[in-house]
Computed example of a mutant assay.
Amino acid sequence: MTIAELSNVPKHVAIIMDGNGRWANERGQPRSFGHKQGVEAVRTVVRAAGEVGVKYLTLFAFSSENWRRPEAEIQDLFGLLKFFIRRDLAELHASNVCIKVIGDRYRLASDILNLLLEAEETTRNNGGLVLVIAFNYGARDELARAVQAIARDVEAGRLEPGAVTPEMISQRLDTAGIPDPDVIIRTSGEERLSNFLLWQSAYSELMFVPEYWPDFGREQFFEAIARYGNRVRRFGAVTPPAVAGSQA
C-alpha cells in the first residue's frame, strides 16, 4: 500500500505497543530481545506517521502498572528509552518532530527524567509531527490527579463546584492542548485499553491487530490508516447512508 492510496488520514493516532515479550518467546529469545526489536518498530512507525500526514502520534511506552514487572525487565525498558532518546533525538529534531511526555514523573529516576525533559525542551518549537510518549502513565492516575487539582481550586475558593465542566477536566489532564485520538491501535491481538487514555478515547475508533509490536511496520501502519478511512464516525448522531465512508 502506498501513501497515495490513503485518504481520510486521522489527525491523532495512539498506539498500545503490545507483544514484545511474546514475540521474543516464540523465537526462543529473552523478553529483552523483544523490547529491543520494539524500539526499531517505534522508529519505523514514527517515520511512517510523518510521511502520511498524521499530526499527533501517542505511544504507550511504560504504564504505571508496569512497575509490577521484574526489576530486571523494568531496567531493560528504562535502558531502551535512554538508548532511543540518545540515538534518535537529533534525527527527530532535524525532522521537525515535537516531543511531549505524559504520565506521572514523580517516581522516575533523575537520569530518566532529565532525558525526557531534554527531549521536550530540544524539540519544543518544532512544528511537525507531535510525538507523545506516555511514560509511567495510567489513565486512572491521570484522572485522579486532574480531580485533585480541581478540588484544590474549589477548596481555595477559586472555583465553584457547579462550574466544573468536561472541558475543564480535559484541560487538567496530561494531554491538555492535544486533541483526542481519532483511532487507538493495539497490537498483538489483545482487545482492551489497559488503562490508556480512558477519558480521551470516548469517541476514538478502536483497532486491534494481530501482529506483535516488533512486526508492526510501515505497511501494517498504512493498512490500519486505510481501515480507519473506511469507518464512519457519528459522535452520537445519525449519519445518512449517502455519506458512508466519510467522517461525520
Rank of each mutant, 00 (worst) to 15 (best):
Y137R: 08
F84L: 05
F84D: 00
G103S: 05
A90W: 07
L129P: 04
I99W: 07
D104C: 09
V132C: 02
I99D: 12
A90F: 10
T123N: 09
E121M: 11
N66C: 09
L108N: 05
V101T: 00
L92M: 14
L115I: 03
I133W: 01
G127T: 10
P70Y: 09
E120K: 04
A134W: 10
N66P: 01
I112Y: 01
L117E: 06
L108F: 12
L80G: 04
L80P: 05
V97N: 04
K82I: 06
V132L: 07
F135S: 09
H93R: 06
L77D: 06
W67Q: 09
L108C: 06
A134V: 03
E121K: 12
F78N: 00
Y137V: 11
Y106D: 11
A90I: 10
L77R: 00
L89K: 11
N96D: 15
L129K: 04
L89G: 00
C98S: 02
L115E: 10
H93N: 14
I112M: 13
L131N: 01
G127P: 01
L131Y: 07
L81S: 06
D76E: 14
H93M: 08
N126M: 13
N96M: 07
N66Q: 01
Y137H: 04
I85S: 10
F84N: 01
E121P: 02
N114F: 02
D104E: 12
Y106A: 12
N96K: 15
L129C: 06
L115A: 04
A109E: 14
N114G: 04
R87I: 15
V97H: 10
L117R: 13
N66I: 04
C98M: 11
S64F: 06
T123G: 00
L92A: 09
L116D: 10
D88I: 09
R140A: 12
A144Y: 14
G127M: 09
E91K: 15
N114T: 12
L116F: 00
T122G: 03
F135G: 12
E120G: 00
A119M: 11
V101Q: 02
G127H: 05
I102A: 05
S95T: 08
T122L: 13
A90V: 15
D104H: 07
V132K: 00
A72C: 04
A109H: 07
R69A: 13
R87Y: 12
N66D: 03
Y137T: 03
N126Y: 13
N136Q: 00
D76T: 09
N126L: 15
P70K: 01
L116M: 11
L81E: 13
D111V: 08
V97Y: 09
D88G: 05
I112N: 08
G128C: 03
R87W: 12
H93T: 15
L108K: 08
E65P: 02
E71F: 15
L129N: 06
E120M: 15
D141Y: 09
L131C: 12
F83R: 05
N125L: 15
E120L: 11
G127L: 12
S64A: 11
G127D: 14
A139H: 06
D111H: 07
L92S: 10
G79C: 01
R107L: 14
E121N: 13
G103K: 00
R86E: 10
R86N: 13
N66L: 06
A119W: 02
L80E: 00
D76N: 04
L143M: 15
I112D: 07
A144G: 14
A134S: 11
W67C: 00
D88T: 03
